[in-house]
Design a protein around this nucleic acid. Structure first.
Lengths: 123, 123
DNA sequence: CTGTATCCAAGGGGATACTG
DNA sequence: CAGTATCCCCTTGGATACAG
């Protein structure tokens, strides 16, 4: 019931808990293009349900990564934009993306090799 | 059924799918210290079940991030070590950790502020 | 348009016990 | 010691319908 220095005290775990879910990275990356409305984000991502979009946006807003602005107009208008902290996160995500782009071939090669191995095959 | 440029084609998503789970980052970070045995890893992390350790290790091995060496001895001995690719990933994870260490205070402040807001309170 | 509420299926991951 | 096999719970997230 008590780990060494890991569990919740590990910063990388906390960071991953924030962006490790299915949509956060996508939403943040989309907002990197600039201020967008709820429907615009949904349209650009495609496949995300309104529930998940709102849920993701709320989480990002709560963590100070996204700023939500509501305009009290007749047709409700709500705009979302990255905060300075959010823009910072985007930079990190882009590094992650870059790493992935460079190394994915290696990973796939390793995987193909692993799956083809006669010894420790077995998925 | 077809997103713009995201969904599975997004590299960052692929990278996150690899390290976004509960244990991969912890295991990889632990192995950054050097070659370790199954039990040693479990001991250093604390709280991980043998099932999850093996499962995580298998995934990392399959993706070419970790190298598994089995010694055919009387008391079974299996050692795990990072590959070049794995060491590369560790570098990225450390960047992530660094970012988290620096910005977690901001995130927590934003969260506390959000939770205290009279307007859009409501968890 | 923006967002909420409900229902529900799938899977991750924990506990435990057992095998080589 | 290393790893496997079950069982099972609980969370994530998708579909759908509805409200402000």
């Amino acid at each position: 019931m008590d780990a060494d220095l890991f569990d919740a005290s590990c910063p990388s775990r906390q960071a991953l808990d924030r962006i490790g879910d299915r949509w956060s990275v996508l939403v943040v990356s989309t907002l990197a293009a600039g201020t967008l409305r709820h429907g615009e984000i949904a349209g650009r991502i495609g496949g995300i349900t309104p529930k998940m979009l709102t849920q993701t946006l709320r989480g990002l807003e709560r963590d100070g990564l996204v700023r939500r602005t509501v305009y009290a107009e007749v047709p409700p208008r709500v705009e979302y934009a990255l905060t300075g902290l959010g823009r910072d996160l985007v930079g990190l995500v882009q590094q992650l993306t870059r790493w992935a782009e460079v190394h994915i071939p290696d990973v796939e090669a390793a995987r193909a090799d692993y799956d083809a191995r006669p010894t420790a095959s077995r998925k």
